[in-house]
């Protein structure tokens, strides 16, 4: 437990270096969101309101169009359910048990985004303290909300450079490699690629939900076929 054995090293500084790569993806994406909000006719301060209440990147982009069309609340609830359904799987490998105190646990669950899951769950089990996890989550939210406010205020003045959204692809690629290094399990990423491609071809609109459900189902099947017999 390297983090536990160095109590003098403050959790926020460790979290700052943990989240630096994610910040490089989140800030530009937040900027883009803020610009889009203002261009869609919202006052700048709606950007942090969206980011604190919705707090799920891809859904926030979707919500701009949905609320401008005055979509019924039931449809918004269903869309949220489908777009964010993948988060039900994150509980399997997110170490909430090291976070103590009801308010901290509430925040840890509220702020369990793709990015914080990626940073936290790709570490070796037991490598992170509760304080460090909360700092990782608070910093990720700060990058996202800060980028959004900046985009809403000054984003329209910035030049539009196409291709910077690749930062998010590169971020998930890097995290996949780090997660692979932790386990060295070859079938898992191969199954995931297969599920992702099939889901994209069969139902592009529900790609994430179908790919992740299929991937988890295949892993459970593989466990039952190979591991359960040795129990």
């Amino acid at each position: 437990m390297p983090a536990e054995s160095r109590p003098a090293y403050p959790a926020w500084r460790a979290a700052l270096s943990d989240t630096a790569p994610v910040g490089f993806g989140l800030v530009p994406l937040g900027l883009a969101f803020g610009v889009l909000m203002v261009q869609s006719g919202f006052a700048w301060w709606w950007t942090p309101v969206f980011s604190f209440l919705v707090y799920a990147g891809s859904l926030e982009f979707l919500m701009i169009g949905l609320v401008l069309a005055v979509t019924p609340l039931a449809t918004i609830a269903l869309t949220t359910f489908l777009v964010n359904f993948r988060h039900v799987f994150y509980a399997l490998s997110f170490p909430l048990h090291v976070v103590h105190g009801p308010l901290r646990r509430l925040y840890a669950m509220y702020a369990l985004t793709d990015e914080t899951y990626a940073v936290v769950a790709t570490r070796a089990p037991g490598a992170l303290t509760g304080a460090r996890i909360l700092w990782i989550q608070a910093l990720c939210q700060a990058y996202w909300v800060g980028g959004g406010i900046l985009g809403a205020l000054v984003g329209t003045l910035l030049p539009d450079v196409p291709g910077l959204d690749f930062a998010l692809t590169a971020l998930f690629t890097v995290l996949a490699i780090d997660a692979f290094r932790a386990q060295r399990d070859v079938p898992a990423p191969l199954l995931a690629v297969g599920c992702a491609i099939v889901a994209q071809l069969v139902a592009p609109g529900q790609m994430l939900v179908i790919a992740m459900t299929g991937f988890v189902a295949l892993l459970v099947g593989r466990y039952l076929l190979t591991e359960a017999q040795h129990a």
């Binding site: 993948r86 932790a182 386990q183 995931a192 599920c195 994430l208 790919a211």
Partner: peptide, 21 residues
């Protein structure tokens, strides 16, 4: 099973997000 799944899921979820982006 939860421990086994929890260890193998992150790499796959990240790969799916790469394809998604």
């Amino acid at each position: 099973i939860v421990g086994w799944l929890g260890a193998r899921m992150p790499v796959g979820i990240m790969v799916i997000l790469v394809v998604y982006t």
